[in-house]
Design a protein around this nucleic acid. Sequence first.
DNA 1: ATATTATTGAACAAGATGTTCGATAATATA
DNA 2: TATATTATCGAACATCTTGTTCAATAATAT
Lengths: 175, 175
Amino acid sequence: MDRRQRKTREAIFSAFRELLQHRRYENITVQDIIDKADVGRSTFYSHFETKDALLYAICSDIFDHIFKGDMCNYPGQTHSLEEKLAHILWHLRDHKKDITGLLSCESADLFMGYIRGYLRELFTLHLKDFNKDVPDDFLLNHLISSFCAVIKWCSDKKMEFSPEETARNFMILVS
Amino acid sequence: MDRRQRKTREAIFSAFRELLQHRRYENITVQDIIDKADVGRSTFYSHFETKDALLYAICSDIFDHIFKGDMCNYPGQTHSLEEKLAHILWHLRDHKKDITGLLSCESADLFMGYIRGYLRELFTLHLKDFNKDVPDDFLLNHLISSFCAVIKWCSDKKMEFSPEETARNFMILVS
DNA sequence: ATATTATTGAACAAGATGTTCGATAATATA
DNA sequence: TATATTATCGAACATCTTGTTCAATAATAT
């Protein structure tokens, strides 16, 4: 990949990420992005078909950055579910700046979609731990949605919480 | 109120509600609304300051229509929490057409906000029923979010469910 | 019958997204 | 180093959307 391309893409990404820290997606214009990234309008559109395409790219990028390669989901389950959940909350807190913008309004559904997919895998592995007389898909949806609500709650509270304690409280509520 | 005003307002409301059944809010333009309602552009803006103002008005309208005056929240609690929740699900199912559009994307947060407020009151009344060793606000948030997730789940499943069974399953999961 | 008020339609401004294209600069290759 | 390729630039453009304005007209209340 051409150095110019790399630099431009990086400039757009980082401009967009910075803007997302202080404003929500729907209030950020392409003009804002190219001003901050200091690239031409046509250059922007040669990299991303639409403004939404950039949002998709950055969501996927940040999600991968936070969740890929961590120890939560690997085959030899040496960690308990509670430990895994605390681990996720640690990760999210570390990336506080990147995610607060993405967890608001229009972009929230998209980014939460990634997280839900991840949680679906995780809770599916542990579904047998729960002894509840309800259909499996109902239980699974409950676990995923509840933990997403916890994430949202943490985000709203500026991530000022103890991941371990929060994970423990969550486990108390769903067990 | 002038009959013309009433008619116009009603035409806009019903046009908007119909449009919301097949499209989500952010894809509906003012042009679409006034075409369907068959009113002039300036008339529209003499009734509603902005397009968002119409959304607010209709959310509040539909919410009131569904939730006000029902027996869920009145002082003499002769019904159990489970019965009240089933009751809510009945109501929502009856108004399926009106709410599916409101529960998508941009408008979802707004409409869910109304529902959350209602649920907050309801669950607060019953908070002592739950014996969980977690902070009250954490528990309350969990209950509200979980039941909202149930509502969303029902809506995604086209409201093809049994309110009683769903409420029972919910109570099993949070008890 | 008259005064008031609502509606209309058309034109307008502002702001956003996305496109096009010739000129220019940076990069890779020979 | 010379040359061909490729990315960027910038400015203009089309299109769509929201929201405003205003004089003419129609419906309503008194």
